[in-house]
Simulated assay, not measured.
Amino acid sequence: MYSVEPAAPRGLERLVDRLAGYGAYHRDARNLITHLIGIPMIVVAVAILLSRPTLDLGDVHLNPAMVVAGLAAAWYLGLDLRFGAVMTVLLTAAVVTGDALADRSTGVWLGWGLGLFVVGWIFQAVGHVFEGRKPAFLDDVAGLLIGPLFVVSETAFMIGLRREVAAAIEARVGPLRVRERRRPVRPH
């Protein structure tokens, strides 16, 4: 007898495929928590570090962070308009933050950029110790783009949004595992 997996909601197959592929590496709730902290730190760090140098085109200045964020936003929007719009706003905030820190001294710029990058990856590593699995991007480099979207989608799922997407992902990879707390046995 064959089991039939529920289909992804119409028009969301690529989104569900990407999030389920990444989500398969992230089923431990503790790993999810570390990713909710670490991934935003890494995204902001990359925006900071890519905010130098700038190319001035008259009144407009352009830096690598703007280009990378623009390309990433276009990719997210192509994958899903609603999550893509949220990602675009968040990437814009990261670029604005990076741009502001790029105007500071080299020590401030590098301190924030490298500090957030290193601490963010420490959170990631701890999460994968909990998970007992290597990071998804080691098998598919696209995981580096999916990670931030995973954080946004999981946050949306936690507050009850996009339930149809959450259900389709869980149908493929199962629910989050929550480690049960062991209660001490008390003598009677």
Rank of each mutant, 00 (worst) to 15 (best):
M1Q: 03
S3T: 10
V4G: 09
E5A: 10
E5H: 10
E5P: 02
P6R: 10
P9Q: 11
P9S: 14
P9E: 11
R10Q: 15
R10Y: 15
E13Q: 10
V16S: 05
L19S: 02
L19E: 05
L32Y: 02
T34E: 08
H35R: 00
L36C: 14
L36P: 04
G38A: 04
M41F: 01
I42R: 08
V44Q: 11
V46C: 12
A47T: 11
L50I: 03
S51A: 11
S51Q: 03
R52N: 04
T54D: 05
L55G: 09
D56Y: 14
L57T: 01
D59L: 06
V60T: 14
H61N: 14
H61D: 11
N63H: 01
P64F: 03
P64C: 08
P64A: 11
A65F: 00
A69K: 08
A69F: 07
G70A: 01
L71M: 13
A72E: 12
A73C: 12
A73Y: 02
W75L: 07
Y76R: 06
L77A: 06
L77H: 14
G78K: 09
G78S: 03
L79C: 02
D80T: 00
R82W: 13
R82S: 11
F83S: 05
F83G: 13
A85M: 15
A85N: 13
V89W: 08
V95L: 05
D99E: 05
A100H: 13
L101P: 13
A102C: 05
D103F: 06
G107P: 03
W109V: 01
W109S: 01
G111S: 11
G111I: 06
W112A: 06
W112P: 03
L116A: 00
L116G: 10
F117N: 00
V118N: 00
V118S: 02
V118A: 12
V119A: 12
V119N: 04
V119F: 02
G120F: 02
W121K: 06
W121L: 03
A125H: 07
V126R: 08
G127R: 01
H128A: 10
K134E: 12
P135A: 00
A136V: 03
D139C: 00
G147Y: 00
L149S: 12
F150C: 06
V151I: 00
V151M: 07
V151E: 07
V152I: 15
T155A: 15
T155W: 01
T155P: 08
A156G: 13
A156Q: 01
F157N: 07
M158Q: 15
I159F: 14
I159Q: 03
R162M: 15
R162Y: 10
A166N: 10
A167Q: 14
A168V: 01
I169M: 02
E170V: 09
E170L: 02
P175C: 05
P175M: 14
L176H: 01
L176F: 07
V178P: 10
V178E: 15
V178Y: 03
R179H: 12
R182A: 13
V185D: 09
